[in-house]
């Protein structure tokens, strides 16, 4: 693996909750609790997990929309977690985001032209007015819309078209990494596949890296190179697509995969149904975070927290069972 575009080292983010009265101990939501991974150039890493497991927060810390509590965010070899907002601005160019909701991610009062031109102007990426215009046309055609779209406003477009505009906006700064935060979750199935294909094409064409945050495992399997499975702010298992989908090791990963619908009514399926809800991230369970719902939990899981251990080349699992089993 060459130098990664992005590296997270033990990133933690906690939010204070409840009373701020003195004398009362403050409690915290541990949204992200020690996450580390890297993304190589041109690679897609998918972050999957249930709602509230902290996957979006990870994306936001990379964009510095949220500051990390501790840990390092290294972008192109440069630590960005401690930079001031002003010092950070030049580095913003290399990471962009595509949001989930295509209806609130574009300023309704701006024309598409101005929406796309804003990042180009901010980073001084156009040498002249003609150059800017050429870039705008190039962007809008790249995402499969026509040049006329530039002079319209967001409300004149459908959800899928808006998401294309959102992608064009993310591409405008010529980033190295695009974070897709549930970027296709709000779209209809047919539109969804178009957008996923567009992303895949753009990635091939431009050598982009993608951090694909999603709970839709079918799309993840179609599009990704590597997968990281998160549960309650921690990565439970990380590995290549083949390792995760072909030979999942962690009981949580297995349970997630067994919940993916199979398009064959006759198929025999053994569903692993998890009991109970996700425990509160304010007071995560002792030991393995998953032990309260894990069908295979044993004594050690309740006392000792497993750490990510290498199973195979690039395949890491945080589970006592795999440690013992191998």
């Amino acid at each position: 693996m060459s130098i990664p575009i992005l590296e997270l080292n033990d990133v933690r983010k906690r939010y204070p909750v409840g009373s701020r009265l003195p004398g009362r101990q403050r409690r915290f939501v541990h949204a992200v609790d020690g996450v580390s991974f890297g993304i190589a150039r041109g690679e897609t890493l998918s972050l999957v997990g249930e709602s509230g497991c902290g996957k979006s927060t990870v994306g936001r810390t990379i964009l510095r929309l949220t500051d990390v509590t501790s840990g390092q965010v290294v972008l192109n070899g440069m630590r960005i977690d401690g930079l001031s907002p002003r010092g950070l601005r030049p580095y913003r160019r290399s990471v962009q985001i595509v949001f989930q909701d295509p209806f609130s991610s574009l300023n309704p009062r701006m024309r598409v032209r101005d929406i796309l031109a804003e990042p180009i102007r901010n980073f001084g990426l156009a040498t002249s007015a003609a150059d800017l215009e050429a870039q705008l046309v190039d962007l809008i055609t790249k995402v499969g819309l026509r040049g006329e779209a530039l002079d319209r406003r967001p409300h004149e477009f459908s959800g899928g078209q808006r998401q294309r505009i959102g992608i064009a906006k993310a591409l405008a700064t010529r980033p190295d990494l695009i974070i897709c935060d549930e970027a296709v979750s709000a779209l209809d199935v047919s539109v969804k596949s178009q957008i996923v294909n567009l992303l895949a094409d753009l990635q091939r064409e431009m050598g982009l890296s993608l951090l694909f945050i999603s709970h839709d495992l079918a799309i993840v399997e179609y599009l990704t190179h590597r997968v990281a499975v998160m549960y309650l702010g921690k990565i439970m298992e990380i590995g290549s697509r083949r390792q995760i989908f072909g030979a999942p090791k962690h009981p949580y990963t297995k349970a997630l995969l067994s919940a993916v619908p199979v398009p064959d009514p006759e198929a025999e399926r053994s569903r692993i149904v998890l009991e109970g809800d996700i425990p509160s991230p304010i007071a995560p369970p002792r030991g393995c975070r998953f032990h309260t719902r894990c069908p295979l939990a044993f004594t050690r899981c309740r006392e000792e927290e497993p750490v990510l251990a290498v199973q195979a080349e690039g395949h890491e699992v945080a589970c006592h069972l795999t440690e013992a089993g191998n």
């Binding site: 929309l65 913003r92 009062r109 906006k169 700064t173």
Partner: peptide
């Protein structure tokens, strides 16, 4: 999201306020 999008697009705080928040 479009306000956060403006931040990631490199717009300064005064610019975000004047171009994105104010008109809305």
């Amino acid at each position: 999201p479009f306000i956060e999008g403006a931040v990631t697009a490199g717009s300064s705080t005064p610019r975000v306020i004047l171009r994105h928040v104010l008109p809305n």
